[in-house]
Design a binder for these strands. Structure first.
Lengths: 199, 199, 199, 199
DNA sequence: AATGAATGAGCATTCATTCAT
DNA sequence: TATGAATGAATGCTCATTCAT
């Protein structure tokens, strides 16, 4: 592939990702992507075969990117397992802040069904290894409840971060809008981390 | 409105709700709704004005229904505040099991933006009163950590139930598929509840 | 037909006439007529059979009404055949001012083709008798050119009045907008009448 | 624009013009235009944006074409200002014969309201200059009445030609059907011209 | 590699008309 | 007589995709 082609491809991808994340698969029009990317529509088909193909590529790409980020940061900055839960929760919160498209794409994919999700199968799942080590240590030192298995523990932490970002619109209206201020977010992280340590 | 019309309206609503929940706003076609409901397409416009209007009605309806259910059950069966977290988590888990369309509709709405969410403004928010009473009692009796405020507490419980249902597809592949078996679900509830009690 | 029915019928007719005149056959919707007349749509079909039937009735009605008006006024106020052309032109100008729907309906009918125009066949054509008498007198007295036959004479007078009203929009922009002021109209009538006398 | 596209555009325009002239804006269906032009419906939207846009283009186009024709022929063949009125009337009559769509389009536009007519604003109005010169000469030589201004004079001539063509259907039935035979037309032109000279 | 032109199925919505009460 | 409910065939317009250069 030529250099020019590579650039065109990149351009399409990044534009499409933004739009798919924003409006979902059915809400995004191929024409709109082409226009926004200032690229000829036909190129999309030349490089990705179809709209679905492009969506898949976008999905896989954000997923991989976030995965890489996760692998690189998760549990890396833990100098004290005393506050493991807080560090982890903060990292997941930051992750969603940094890659908002990740959650949206994943949500669309979950809603649309297996079709797209299947593509993500092979990518993940090794990320937790390092964290698990810290978790065990923390548990042994009494910083995390004994009768909780790792899967449950990390699940609840991810759930908090996920829920915070995915239901912002409704939560700010029904539960508390303070949650989504800068201070409120900080307070939430600290309190939630305490709770999620289970001790 | 005549009896016949009422029935037609109902029929449209329930059919549309199922389809919107399944495929989202853009993924659902008016023709498909009419066909599935065995109703003349025009009736949809006569009763709901537009596809958007119908979606809104569906959204408001599930929301209200779930809200009513929530109000009636939340914290009602608590005979022992010792296990408050478990009771609450279980109730939220059951709620999502019973009204799967609720989460999906809300998710679509959150993705689509404020437009639809605004309709839900006035409905909710008094539901937590009763629960808060139990929470305070539990906290005073040492069953829940002292330094957690109610909003954070309930947030994390709702988050767990939400995350469990919304990310089933991806979680079962990346974290653990045992989570979604009958036994796994039960175990998860117990463990997660312990963790979420924060003690 | 009951009194109530008669009223409903009248109401439909007058409403429909106004709307047909304004927007033409295809531009007017049956629903709109029913709504505007505050009448149940079905009544239109009960009384007029179809949208076309209603249009026809409207057409025939204005036509007859204007015809009656024409018969009653045309050439009646002529106390001096010296100014026959001016009187006639003024009468036609006034007619169009008084019954603007007449011209519009006739125009729509002419555009739509014979279909509707056929209904008007039998109504007219005796109106000119009286005028013809005045014309002959005026011609004999040298107030109107000798070598013009009546048909041509009256044609040109009607044409002036017609053109003035039908092409108002374009004429005011391309020829002169003064024509359509109060003073301009008056001046036009006098001058045009002079010209149309042919002497 | 490529050659092929140009052809497609032309094809749409000419077909649409014929149909709009025949059946008006609301009476003409986009599908019908596409079918008649043997062109893909979508092309209409690609080139004209909307049905209204297409109508406007048609309107502007006939108007411009007729305008050009008018500019080129009006008063050009006058070798003797003695019969100025006849020459002019005949030219307008011929114009309507040659461009029947012109009158119909203009009539539809006048009926539909300012919306479309506004597009025609800038096109016309210089055409009368040459004719005015002849008019003045004719008036000075006593071939046209002294007390008539040019606007009124040309108005009545245009009115006659216009009325003849626009009300053919009704006039042939109510006034005289001889008017619309070949001989009748000729006789009408001569007589009407005499009358319209005003002397 | 890149682009403008073309296509056919589809989509939300409307309309004239009929049915049932 | 009057009215709300229902219908099926449009109707203007869009979209994902392919063709031709």
């Amino acid at each position: 592939m030529q250099e020019r082609a590579k650039k065109t491809r990149e351009l399409i991808m990044s534009t499409a990702l933004a739009m798919f994340a924003e409006k979902g698969f059915h809400g995004t029009k191929v024409d709109a992507i082409a226009t926004a990317a200032k690229v000829n529509k036909q190129r999309i088909y030349a490089y990705f075969g179809s709209k679905s193909g492009l969506f898949e590529q976008c999905l896989v790409t954000v997923f991989a990117e976030v995965n890489r980020f996760e692998r690189e940061t998760l549990g890396l900055n833990i100098d004290n397992i005393f506050c493991l839960s807080e560090v982890l929760l903060r990292e997941y919160m930051d992750l969603h802040d940094k890659y908002p498209q990740f959650q949206r794409m994943l949500t669309w994919a979950n809603l649309e069904g297996t079709e797209f999700v299947d593509k993500l199968l092979d990518i993940k799942s090794e990320n937790f290894k390092k964290v698990r080590v810290f978790f065990v240590a923390a548990q042994q030192n009494g910083f995390v409840r004994q009768d909780i298995i790792f899967e449950t523990y990390i699940f609840n932490i991810m759930a908090a971060a996920w829920f915070y970002h995915s239901n912002r619109l409704t939560l700010s209206r029904t539960l508390s809008d303070k949650l989504f201020t800068v201070d409120g977010r900080e307070q939430f992280i600290r309190e939630a981390a305490n709770q999620l340590s289970g001790i």
